[in-house]
């Protein structure tokens, strides 16, 4: 047992958007806090801090995670993708384009989480029905759009 070695602060290494970050932090900090406050990646939003809105969604090994309910220390060695890392070689992700062009963005506060959720979902299920899309993003609250254009934007990438 390594009981005695336990410290409250630790050096944590995170792989975010393909970059390694090493920093000293307390173990009780969430990934959301660390991304926003330590790494300056403020694209990940805090809408509720309690797992109920999806604004803080990031991808961990391709899966959607609520960063407000994830310990930063717990995702070391995992591939973390935030909205800032979605574009490839300067080229925006098709979902980003679709959201922009279809008017699926109003205030934009739900947008990063929504897009990442949609990405995780489409990667798994490239040809979903409208109902499946709705279900996939149903943990991501949007107060502005009424979801119509968000669902349209996501569906626009499916019928290929």
């Amino acid at each position: 047992m390594r009981g005695k070695e336990v410290v409250v602060k630790r050096i944590i290494t995170l792989n975010v958007n393909g970059e390694e970050f090493e920093f000293l932090t307390e173990v009780h900090r969430t990934l959301l806090e660390v991304l926003r406050e330590d790494l300056g990646l403020t694209g990940t939003k805090r809408g509720c801090d309690l797992g109920t809105c999806g604004a803080c969604t990031v991808l961990i090994e391709g899966k959607p995670y609520l960063s407000c309910l994830t310990l930063a220390a717990d995702v070391q060695g995992k591939k973390i993708v935030t909205i800032e890392g979605l574009a490839q070689d300067g080229e925006p992700h098709p979902l980003q384009k679709a959201f922009v062009q279809k008017g699926a963005i109003q205030c934009g506060f739900c947008t990063p989480g929504m897009i990442l959720m949609a990405k995780a979902f489409l990667d798994e299920n490239p040809n979903p029905s409208e109902e499946e899309v709705k279900q996939a993003i149903s943990g991501n609250i949007c107060r502005c759009t009424g979801y119509t254009k968000i669902v349209e934007a996501i569906l626009s990438l499916t019928h290929k």
Binding site: T42, G43, Q96, G103, F109, T111, I115
Partner: peptide, 23 residues
């Protein structure tokens, strides 16, 4: 015309700054 919002790109890429994003 059906123009996307001028700041839609910022918002889609996580670069839009809201008050809590400032430090």
């Amino acid at each position: 015309k059906r123009e996307p919002m001028l700041d839609a790109w910022e918002k889609a890429t996580g670069r839009a700054r809201f008050t809590d994003d400032l430090a």
